[in-house]
Amino acid sequence: MITTALYLTIAMVTLAALLNVYRLIAGPDEPDRVLAIDTLYINAIALIILLGITLGTRMYLESALLIAVMGFVSTVAMAKYLKRGSVIE
């Protein structure tokens, strides 16, 4: 039963990632694209966790943690760049 639920969930999260890519390409403004990337990295974390459950290993959690930290920093940097025109003043 877990296997079925796992595959269904992977399908749903992948579909969600595709919808995010649609918003990333369609825009229309820069904040929309940054928001799409922000959601995309959160979905990537979800996919990594699901991969870890499928393979029965904990190893991938480290990379999920790294993506979470780096993704947040890059979103903030992009938002700051859009607002001020530079990241570090």
């Binding site: 877990i2 995010n20 918003r23 929309d32 979800a46």
Partner: peptide
């Protein structure tokens, strides 16, 4: 575990549908 997985997948998908479907940036947020 199965219920939580399906719940999580459904909400991730709903968030993405909202991002793709809602009319302007502030609602997409």
């Amino acid at each position: 575990i199965s219920a939580l997985l399906l719940f999580g997948g459904a909400f991730t998908l709903i968030g993405a549908i909202g991002l793709a479907r809602l009319p302007d940036f502030y609602t997409r947020l």
